[in-house]
Structure formats: structure tokens, C-alpha cells
Nucleic acid binder design. Structure first.
Lengths: 396, 396
DNA sequence: TGATCATCTTTCGCACCTTGATTTAACATG
DNA sequence: CATGTTAAATCAAGGTGCGAAAGATGATCA
């Protein structure tokens, strides 16, 4: 049974402040009065709280708005320069490190090519650590201004300070990426699956904006996803939830890299689509090959759409989301030409009521959003307490 | 985005009291000192809070425990007689109304046979209302002592005061069961899907006890289930989540009553199993027929186990639960003879790590637990605020 | 120019919360 | 009967949000 935590009056403050900060972060500039409405707090509380946050320079004023015949309202917003966050995307071909300010404006970037054949954990960790130093230097911010580092990796990330990563693609069995990185940086670390971080990016800044029960399906060469319940990423008991790619849709079907059979990934992933269509293409050419296939048309694509509909149907029946976002480069290509058919295939397999509550849309962020999403893990924590973490706060 | 609510100091009290009450309800009798540990609250707070609750007779003393050489500790527990709850199971063949005390001891029961052919909503509502009066009278409690009525129905229950029920089995399109019942009783009403209420019963008192990320799969003639995340039933954006029975596991497979094809229910439900095995049995004989089939063995059963494994695999990949409970009369029969095979079939289709975190067990409550689970909906609310609801609180 | 009004923001006293420290209660032991 | 031990109650202190009232700031109008 879930054990709710003891609460004291200070938690009230923390919670309300987080709510106010969230309203301001996502609701753009707003006056104190607007914040009263948005948060439900009294004007007295909003006043003292904003006063405090302005004093800490977490908030800054953002101009005035005249009112008809009264005192003009002062707009407030989160100070983008109050702190900075680093997002890392550990991909198959490169390690990508980006520095963002709190407004998620990119300030610097560092890329490190890695050979897809072998991903040495030590090498990857060194790339990340060097990247962190590089973007901090290039971005012209002091290390003390950095709130933390978010890292998106393939595979499953076990919770805990070690952040054990199991990524079959890389041949990583139980790589303690957290430990490796912590040895090289004192910054708070947040490690999570890359599909989940990208899903959070879509949730915060993309097609999932404003929703709280959402499924983000990412189709690239392979298939991953994020399940959002109650406004947050659902991770399950061991941080392995949301393995959408390995949803079984064809019993005893095509073998999948995971060792199983009939996985969604073995049908609707770009690699699988091309393979089924008999197209030979190495990973660099996949995108062009899929584009050609889409232009030419193929019964394989029809089947893909059908099976994607089955997969989405399963997600709808289990999660009853208000929105489904299809992203990833292959998902976007497929969706742009076949969204109507995808919706129809889903509807054909789904009970009417839950189908109606789920609006199926395409993602709005490119495949580079993994690093950005990883950075949002840090921001998520920041919005909870608006402080520079004192101890080396860590999760995974 | 989920909008957390404003909090005041009173919410702190409410929350802490709820936590204390919960600890006492599920943790059996405990001393004030034990409660300090269990809740994390200071002894001062526990003392005042228990004092208040004792004064309201929500709690009662439950004996003493000698300590070696000191003041003996006084044990406290929730007073079972403080209030009573009614649970209703609207089934295919009968409407079942039960009265429980807070300790979930059954105090009275009323059954009403209904013809499975036609479930007139008005008739069902009249049965329920009459049942409520009957069990209250038979149980010898005054109506003022009843905290509320929980109702478990088939199909999807839309949230809202109307509690619109869509149950294809009954031919109910959008029956406003909440409205119908509220016209006949002032008691607070909680209407939900019967599989969900039964799942909650297993979670609270059965095989799911102590877990917080759990999937309960109920296999009877048909297939339903409950998904528990973070200690509570996950209902999704439109209260239609957890439709486990209509998970698609065979693309283009057997037609299902829902209108789709290849649903889990179309393979592992008792009706489907018998049908696939070529056994003709009406609903009264299903149980015996399935027992004979299990004793005799059949390739259909092997296939069933295999497909059940696929279904469970999907659930594990999506939810990463710490426990999976298989219940329902057919599920229990199947599980008792084939649990090992079911586990093996699941493992064969599942990634190792999430499979390991999920212990697959059989349910411990009989099929009659629907009404009990419905009653827990009321108790759940009671544990939140330990008061007799003043206004006609309602959800669905 | 000064009075009035409309609107936004701050201030202040109050009620309520949890807590740590202290005191009181209730037993066993010798 | 004095002493030690553990459990539970009490009390003052520090935090928190709220409602009411006051203050601030600009538009409007005589």
C-alpha cells in the first residue's frame, strides 16, 4: 500500500509555492492577481510568496499591463537566468549534451560521435562529463548556476543512486551510469530512459501540453514511449513501465530484438517496416528509404497502419488517455501521410467511449528532443522547491 | 497538466489524520507509540489526534500490552461499529446487497434474482433500493449510521453525479444509475465497474495486500480487471481505463462481444475457452464444464495458458507492477492447476527485469467479492476524513 | 488642479497546525 | 515504599494561509 508522507505546515508552503511556480512557468507572465485565480490562493499569500521569490531572483518582473482606470498590474515570470540545466542524449551514434536556461532556451551544445558497434560505458561517461564542462564554459555560466544534469539513455534504468542501466542495444547489462558520472561531477543527476525524457518534452512543450493522462508513442528505428498518468511519467514499481515497443500484438509473430515474438516494435519500427518490405538499408539510409516507401505505397504500410491501430487500441483500453501523441522520426513520417488511416484502424479496434476521449495527434518536437526532455527532469525538481539543491539530490 | 490543489494548514491535519486512520485500519490494533513510528508524526500530534478520534468514537481501545517495567501501552483500533457501509453487486443473474461494518464483517445480505435476458434499469434500481432498506433493517442499524453505498456494475461508468453506465451485456447505453438511485436514497453513492471494485477488494484484503503497483486480472465467463498505481485504482481520463478483457492479443482473431477481434476475453474467458474446445454449456453449467475440461486436459487449454501469458506480458511491459493477481472463478480454476505454466508463458514473452519484479499469484477472495469491493469505495472515502459525509458526496 | 473612482497589492491580526521539551501517569522491582 | 522505566498528555514556540482593511497607482472628471 502506498504510504503517504507525514505533513507539516512547511509542506503546505512548499506545495503551494511549487504550484505557484508551475502556474507561472507554464502559464507565462502573469500578475499577482492572475496567480490568485490560477492557484486558488488568497492575495495575501500570493503577495508574500512572490515577494520572497522576487527577492531570491527566482522571479522577475515582466512589464505592466494597464487596467481601465485602476492600478496597472505588474506581470511576473520565472527568471530564465536564475539557473541552468544540462540535458544529455545518449544515442546510438552520438552523445549529445546541451545547456538550457530555465526558459528552455538552448545556450550551448556539444556532440560526441560514438561508434554504434561498441558503446563503452566508460567512454560514454567521459563524453558526458566533458560535454558538461564544455557547455558550461561555452554557455558562459558558472558551474554554481547549474541546477543539475538530466540524462536520457536507451533501455531500462533502475531506480537508485547507481542508476543501473540495462540497454540491450548497447550491450549494457547493468551499467552504473550514475556512479560513473557522480565520480566526475558534483551536480545532481537524473537518469532516465530516453523515450521517457522525450515523452516528457512532448508533454511539457509539444503535442501533450496541457494534458495529464497521455500516451506518447515514439517510433524511430525502434519503438518506445512514455505513459503519463496524473500529470507525471508513470514508471511502475521498477522504473520499467511503458515499454510500449514490446507490447505483443501478434502471437507467435516476427521475432524481436528483445528475444520475444510479435512485439509492436517488430512491425511498426522503421527497421521492421523496411525489413518486411524487403528493402535493404543501413541505419544511415533508413530515413530516405522509408520516405521512398511511403511515396510509392506498399501493402506492408497498410498492414503497419493496421497493427499500429491495434497497439494504440491496447493503450487506450488500458490507460483511457485524453491524448495520444505519435512521435519519433518514423512516427512523424508515417503519421503525416496516414494519420487518418491510423485513427480509423484504432477506432475499428477500440470501444467507442474510450476512443472518443483520446485525441490522436502527431508530436511537435523533432527527434532531438531527448536531451531537452532530460533537462526537464531537472526543471521538474526545481519547480518543486525553487532552490539550488543543497545535498547531491539524485534519482533515476 | 494536472492541477494540484491549494493547501492550507487544515489540509495538513486532514491528511495526517487520514494517514493515521489508514495505518490503524490496515495495521491492526496499535499503541499510540506504534502510530508515531508508522506515521512519522510526533507523539504530541498522535496524542491529540487519537484523543479527538476516541472522543468521536471513531477509535476505541483494544486492550493493553504490558511492557517490561513501564506503563503498559494502550492499543487502539478503528471502531467497527462506528459506521456501516453497503456494497452492491449488480451481476448478470442477481442483484446482491450486503451490509458491512467498518471492519468489513458482513452484517446482513439481500439477494434479488434478475433474468439475464433483460436488465431493466428501473427494476435493478428498485432492487438496489429495496435491498438497502432490507439490509439496514436486518442488520439492526439505524440509517444514520450508514456511511454510504458502493455499487459495482458491469461495463464502463462515466464519472459525474449521474454515474452514466454503459454495459453492453445488459444493453445499457447510458443508464444514469446514480440519478435513479439518488431519487430513492439520501445516502452517498459510489458507482464503479464491478471488476474494479473486486480488484480493490483483492488489493485491500486479498492477494494484493500491501502492494501499491498491482494488476488484478479477473477471469470469469468474461474478463475484466483492475490496475492499481500508487496504491489506488487507476481510472484514466474517462473512468474507462483497465479494460483488460479487450486487450488485443491476436490480430484479426476471434470475434469478441465488444465488436472487435482478437480480444483477450475472446480466448481466456470461460465462455471462450469452452467455445473453442467445442463444449456446449449454458451459463449455469459453465463452471462444471470447465472443471471437466481441466481434468481431462485439452490443447485448447495449453493455448489458453500461452495467450494468457501474452496478455500478462503486455500488462507487465506497460505497468511494471510488483504483483499480478489472477482472480475470478475461472481464473482461480485455471490458476490452481496451471499456475506454473502461466508463469512460464509469461516469462517467455517478457523482458527479464520487469518480469522479476512482478510476482504472479492467485486471488484469495471468491467471486462474491464484488459487493465487498464496492463497499470499500465508501470506506476509502471514510478513511480520508473520518466523518459522516454532510452533503451528499458522490463520485462514480 | 484636485477630488473621486477603479483596481491591484500589501499589511496585520487571527485561527490552526506540528513539534520538542517537559510533565504526568501507570506499571515492575527490590 | 522508593526507584526505575515506559507511555501518554501538556505547553510554549515557530510556521502557515486567510479575511479584512489599508495602501498604492493610475484614469477620469469637474
Amino acid at each position: 500500500m502506498s504510504r503517504p508522507e507525514r505533513r507539516t505546515v512547511r509542506d503546505v508552503r512548499r506545495g503551494n509555492q511549487a504550484m505557484l511556480l508551475r502556474a507561472l512557468y507554464f502559464g507565462g507572465p502573469a500578475s499577482r492577481n492572475d496567480l490568485c485565480e490560477a492557484t486558488g490562493l488568497s492575495s495575501a499569500t500570493v503577495s508574500t510568496m512572490t515577494g520572497e521569490l522576487l527577492g531570491d531572483t527566482v522571479l522577475v518582473e515582466a512589464g505592466h499591463v494597464d487596467s481601465d482606470g485602476g492600478r496597472p498590474r505588474v506581470l511576473l515570470r520565472v527568471n530564465p537566468g536564475y539557473g541552468y540545466v544540462v540535458g544529455v542524449d545518449v544515442g546510438e551514434t552520438q552523445v549529445r549534451v546541451e545547456l538550457f536556461d530555465l526558459g528552455m532556451t538552448e545556450r550551448a551544445r556539444a556532440l560526441y560521435a560514438v561508434h554504434s558497434a561498441r558503446h563503452d560505458p566508460g567512454l560514454v561517461a567521459r563524453h558526458i562529463l566533458e560535454g558538461i564542462d564544455t557547455v558550461i564554459a561555452e554557455g558562459g555560466v558558472s558551474p554554481g548556476q547549474v541546477l543539475g544534469v538530466g540524462v536520457g539513455v536507451p533501455g531500462i534504468v533502475e531506480p537508485g543512486p547507481d542508476a543501473l542501466v540495462r540497454a540491450k542495444t548497447f550491450g549494457w547489462e547493468a551499467v552504473p551510469l550514475g556512479t560513473l558520472l557522480r565520480a566526475g561531477t558534483p551536480l545532481p543527476l537524473y537518469v532516465d530512459n530516453g523515450a521517457k525524457t522525450m515523452g516528457q518534452a512532448e508533454l511539457w512543450f509539444g503535442a501533450g501540453r496541457g494534458t495529464s493522462d497521455t500516451v506518447v508513442m515514439l517510433i524511430g528505428s525502434r519503438v518506445g514511449g512514455t505513459i503519463v498518468t496524473d500529470g507525471g511519467i508513470y514508471r511502475g514499481a521498477g522504473h520499467a513501465a511503458g515499454e510500449i515497443g514490446h507490447l505483443k500484438i501478434v502471437t507467435g509473430g516476427r521475432p524481436c530484438k528483445c528475444g520475444g515474438r510479435g512485439c509492436l516494435e517488430a512491425y511498426v519500427g522503421a527497421e521492421a517496416i523496411l525489413d518486411r518490405a524487403g528493402v535493404v538499408a543501413d541505419s544511415a539510409e533508413e530515413e530516405a528509404a522509408l520516405a521512398r516507401l511511403l511515396a510509392a505505397g506498399s501493402p506492408v504500410l497498410d498492414e503497419t497502419v493496421e497493427l499500429l491501430g491495434v497497439g494504440l487500441s491496447n493503450l487506450i483500453h488500458l490507460f483511457n488517455p485524453e491524448r495520444i501523441v505519435i512521435g519519433g522520426w518514423a512516427g512523424l513520417m508515417l503519421g503525416e501521410s496516414r494519420l487518418v488511416e491510423i485513427r480509423a484502424a484504432t477506432a475499428a479496434n477500440t470501444l467507442l467511449q474510450p476512443y472518443r476521449t483520446a485525441s490522436i495527434m502527431l508530436g511537435r518536437l523533432g527527434p532531438d528532443a531527448v536531451a531537452m526532455g532530460a533537462a526537464t527532469l531537472v526543471i521538474e525538481q526545481f519547480l518543486r522547491d525553487a532552490r539550488f539543491p543543497t545535498s547531491v539530490g539524485t534519482m533515476s
